[in-house]
Simulated assay, not measured.
Amino acid sequence: MSTNIPSDLKYVASHEWLRLEADGSVTVGITDHAQSLLGDVVYVEVPSVGDVLAADAGAGVVESVKSASDVYAPIAGEIIAVNEALADAPDTVNSDPYGAGWFFKIKPADASVLDGLMDAAAYAKEIGA
């Protein structure tokens, strides 16, 4: 199985990816590996704007025809945007996990924690890719 692991992102073991944006916010979604394991995504629940989450706190749910999985906040911070489009088109998570299939944007409580997260090579090793 070929897995797409963009080199410009950070990753966590629970299969979320993080992209640091120019404004200092962090966009979060699930990896290509995660969506391929889930299969056809039929429902996505995202957190609410204004929620303040601890690192590793539950931040939503993604459901597929096979199973449901929790989505976690990979870093602590405040939710500043959510991808409302996933309510009507949850399958975007399958077709474009690193683009239009993003879940939420978080304002990090401490952006330096990103430095300690896995890079693409480490994530590839984590999943045996």
Results as ranks from 00 to 15, higher is better:
M1W: 14
M1G: 10
T3H: 11
I5P: 00
P6C: 06
P6D: 03
S7N: 15
D8Y: 09
L9A: 11
V12W: 02
V12Y: 02
A13Y: 15
S14P: 09
E16Q: 15
W17Y: 14
W17L: 04
L18D: 06
R19Y: 06
R19D: 12
R19E: 14
L20P: 10
A22P: 09
A22R: 07
D23G: 12
D23T: 03
G24S: 10
G24D: 11
V26F: 02
V26I: 01
T27L: 07
I30S: 05
I30E: 03
I30A: 13
I30H: 00
T31L: 14
D32S: 11
D32W: 02
D32F: 13
H33Y: 11
A34D: 01
A34E: 06
L37C: 06
L37D: 11
L37V: 02
L38K: 04
G39K: 04
D40F: 08
V41N: 04
Y43L: 10
Y43H: 14
V44I: 11
E45H: 12
S48R: 13
V49H: 07
V49I: 06
V52Y: 05
V52Q: 10
V52N: 12
V52R: 00
L53W: 05
A54I: 07
A54Y: 05
A55P: 06
A55E: 15
G58H: 11
G58L: 09
G58A: 14
A59Y: 02
A59C: 05
V62S: 04
V62Q: 00
E63N: 13
E63V: 03
S64N: 01
S64C: 07
V65E: 08
S67N: 10
S67D: 08
S69D: 00
D70Q: 12
Y72Q: 12
P74I: 01
P74Y: 00
P74R: 00
P74T: 03
I75Y: 01
I75F: 01
A76E: 15
A76Q: 01
I79Q: 04
I80T: 11
A81W: 09
A81T: 12
V82A: 04
N83K: 14
E84V: 01
E84L: 08
E84D: 15
E84C: 08
L86N: 03
A87K: 15
A89G: 08
A89E: 12
P90W: 02
D91E: 14
T92V: 14
T92I: 13
V93S: 02
V93M: 09
N94E: 12
D96N: 05
P97H: 03
P97D: 05
P97A: 07
G99L: 09
A100P: 06
G101I: 11
G101D: 04
W102Q: 09
W102N: 03
F104V: 06
F104Y: 05
K105T: 07
I106K: 05
I106D: 14
P108K: 00
D110A: 07
A111K: 01
S112H: 08
V113T: 15
V113Q: 10
L114I: 09
D115H: 08
G116H: 02
G116N: 09
G116V: 05
L117N: 09
L117F: 05
L117G: 03
L117C: 02
L117M: 06
L117P: 07
M118Y: 04
D119T: 08
A120D: 10
A121D: 15
A121M: 03
Y123D: 09
Y123N: 06
A124D: 08
K125Q: 12
K125C: 05
K125Y: 07
K125D: 03
E126D: 13
I127Q: 15
I127A: 07
G128D: 03
A129F: 14
A129W: 14
